[in-house]
Nucleic acid binder design. Structure first.
Length: 483
RNA sequence: GCACCGUUCGUCUAGGGGUUAGGACACCGCUCUUUCACAGCGGUAACACGGGUUCAAUUCCCGUACGGUGUACCA
């Protein structure tokens, strides 16, 4: 049987980084097995819908390299893939469960349920639907229930949990898991607005869509027994479950904003490479069992397996992600990066933005930054001729320094195509310039950088001067003399 | 509270009855160097605790502690 997995987000906002990882694991697992990866939209909570959220999430997913074989945006043979479009289906299956005595009608109001929970809390017992004390078809009788139904009274359908038996299932990540029926709540399956809850819709759709493996976050583990019960009630074979560990904040709580960016689009905006993010996130909770840390999507697909997914949650290490992004930056072709950076440079109004030149600048400075966009600020003195003002301390070290003026003069007059292209000639010129003023070469290079770039740190000076060219260097040196 | 899940350097992790407990990020030092970086080399740093089982336990079992998740007509 061929593998079919699904990623099933709710369109309630942007795509969370943890969701991306779940989606990625689904995708990797499917592709590793030559299977099918499906996107299903779980929009059964009408109160939390956010306009356009689904499109945003798909965009983020695709940006990161997760693509689907079936879904609302691409179609497929098991649609529709949006639960609100499958509305009628769920009631039908809910009724089937009632008929087979696996579910029942309940007529409690939310106030009555609140009161029940308060009583239970006061009595120190676990909050759980009290089937024998609340208003449902068992307590009010079949006839009364039918009467209420006939007059369209508000009602829900609840799962009739067999309290005397254990529910057990095998999780591909966690092994055998057992829950006592006593602990499982009579979950609402069909809400009074006619929409299903996650539990019903999820099971019905997973079955109808022939899902073979349910790979989802660990937070779903406690509700899995309800799903197993549902499969049993329908007489369906449950899929293999795999609950993957959570992504954590530094304080080890479930990853959330407050501690940093958590939405995929935030990472994109910050300038992370999608490949770097996917690579990094894949390694949060999974590892190949080797020391290899860099993986293309193809390599991830090749290496991925559920067996090597960890059980414990993983603190999301932004610092390591930055490092990894920098590593990706170093391996990309400068020409490609130049294309990517160009729009930014243009909107910033820089003059020297010929692609080949930009590529050379990137090649020169990229080892010093983690993000492509950082190149803009780091090398602004190469892209344009307007230099940021010198700091007071910096200015103090060069203005009125007679020896430096002499050295710079010598350097200026020796600057030509030869000394700018040839490293040895450049070194020779630097040495002569320094010595002409009785300075050491090292003592000269620092202020020279300051004069040329107005920065104390920057890329290799020879490389910088080479890219600047004789003329632009000349102008800047002249400006120094005239100030 | 109850249920379930988890626990190897600060972080991500490898390993697994007998290892100098390995790698990566971060940190520190050295080398290179005109700066910052890169690179190279080196260093600090971990098996939560207590009982068992065993010749031997970080590894298996049981407890405890700690943490997380769940406990909705949310997903």
């Amino acid at each position: 049987m061929s593998v079919r997995v699904r990623f099933a987000p709710s369109p309630t906002g942007f795509l969370h980084i943890g969701s991306l990882r779940t989606a990625l694991y689904n995708y990797l697992f499917a592709k590793h097995h030559g299977g099918t990866c499906i996107l299903r939209i779980e929009d059964t909570d009408r109160t939390r819908l956010v306009e356009g959220a689904m499109e945003e999430q798909i965009k983020s997913l695709e940006w990161a390299g997760v693509v689907f074989d079936e879904g609302p945006h691409v179609g497929g043979s098991h649609g529709p893939y949006t639960q609100s479009e499958r509305f009628d289906l769920y009631r039908q299956y809910g009724m089937q469960l009632v008929k087979s005595d696996a579910a029942y009608y309940a007529f409690d109001t939310s106030e009555e349920l609140d009161a029940m929970r308060q009583r239970q809390q006061a009595a120190g017992i676990a909050p759980k639907y009290d089937r024998s004390a609340m208003r449902n078809q068992f307590t009010i009788g079949e006839h009364e229930a039918q009467r209420l139904l006939d007059e369209n009274a508000q009602h829900v359908i609840r799962l009739k949990v067999p309290i005397h038996s254990d529910v057990r299932f095998h999780d591909a990540v966690r092994g055998d898991v057992v829950f006592s029926g006593r602990e499982i709540d009579d979950q609402i399956l069909l809400k009074s607005d006619g929409f299903p809850t996650y539990h019903l819709a999820n099971v019905v759709d997973d079955h109808l869509m022939e899902i073979t493996h349910v790979i989802r976050a660990e937070e779903w583990l406690p509700s899995t027994p309800k799903h197993v019960l549902l499969y049993e009630a329908f007489g369906w074979t449950p899929p293999t479950f795999a609950h993957v560990p959570l992504l954590l904040n530094p304080d080890r709580s479930k990853m959330s904003k407050r501690h940093g960016d958590v939405m995929v689009q935030d990472f994109a905006k910050k300038g992370f490479f999608p490949e770097a993010l996917a690579n990094f996130v894949a390694l949060c909770g999974w590892n190949p069992g080797t020391d290899t840390e860099f993986f293309s999507m193809t390599e991830l697909i090749e290496a991925f397996s559920l067996e090597r997914v960890n059980k414990a949650g993983a603190v999301f290490d932004y610092q390591k992600l930055h490092w990894m992004n920098g590593e990706y930056l170093k391996t990309r072709a400068p020409e490609v990066l130049a294309e990517e950076l160009l729009p930014t440079l243009v909107t910033r109004g820089f003059e020297y933005v010929q692609p080949a030149f930009v590529a050379s600048v990137i090649a020169l400075v990229r080892e010093r930054v983690h993000f492509l966009q950082d190149v803009t600020d780091f090398a602004d003195y190469l892209f344009g001729d307007v230099l940021s003002p010198l700091s007071e301390e910096a200015a103090a070290t060069i203005t009125g320094n007679e020896a430096l003026i002499t050295a710079v003069q010598t350097f200026r007059s020796g600057l030509n195509d030869e000394t700018i292209e040839n490293l040895d000639a450049f070194k020779e010129l630097s040495k002569n310039s320094a010595e002409s003023a009785g300075m050491k070469v090292g003592a000269f290079m620092k202020p020279l950088r300051l004069v040329l770039t107005h920065r104390e740190v920057g890329a290799d000076l020879f490389g910088t001067i080479k890219l600047l060219g004789v003329q632009r260097c000349g102008f800047r040196l002249d400006a120094f003399f005239s100030s």
